[in-house]
Amino acid sequence: MADTDQTGLVLDHLRLLRGPEEMLRVDARIPPGEVLTLMGPSGSGKSTLLAAITGTLPRAFRSHGRIALNSTPLDGLPPEARRTGILFQDPLLFPHLSVGGNLAFGLDPAVKGRAARRARIDAALSEIGLEGHASRDPETLSGGQKARVALMRVLLSKPRALLLDEPFSRLDAALRDQVRRLVFDRAKAEGLPVLLVTHDAADAEAAGGPVISLEG
């Protein structure tokens, strides 16, 4: 890479292998506040790449190259120390916790004191138009509401990068635009580098950043 700026998420000559077979090769830097889109059919290794970044690569795979976030190498760090927030197709709210409990699970432990944490969660809920929903059962929320809670849960954990694994594909068309806008706006506002993997060209278009297409 020519530029020497190392802020944001750096995937330096990253190669993913399943056994001896190479699945995918990426060399990119995503500056803070920008979105890089990886387009490719299922089976092209997009989701596996995200697992390599979060540090949860399944045993059958190996990665070569270097992953760094704001100049800190991530290789060898346990997943919980990487602070790479991830959103999947499904909101995956913890079904045994309340809406507020889900947010509290994510909320940065640096926010101390029961009252302060409670206040932070209530404020976060108002930001996504769900004030007063802290004690609700997540299963009683609508699809769009769940998606917003999932986003807020990630943001409250103070991530340094945001990884999106086709997070809009399960939403219906009307909702998809709205949630997409919210996610990208929030990521930009917080200055997060965003890596989006998708097979939907509309996602790539809405993201507005560079697009890398993968072979199947």
Binding site: T54, T56, P78, E80, G85, I86, F88, L92, F94, F105
Partner: peptide, 16 residues
């Protein structure tokens, strides 16, 4: 179990 719940939790900063 859906392994993604554990992955999300780890990514949110939770230890094993």
């Amino acid at each position: 179990r859906d392994p993604r719940h554990a992955r999300i939790a780890r990514a949110l900063g939770a230890s094993p």
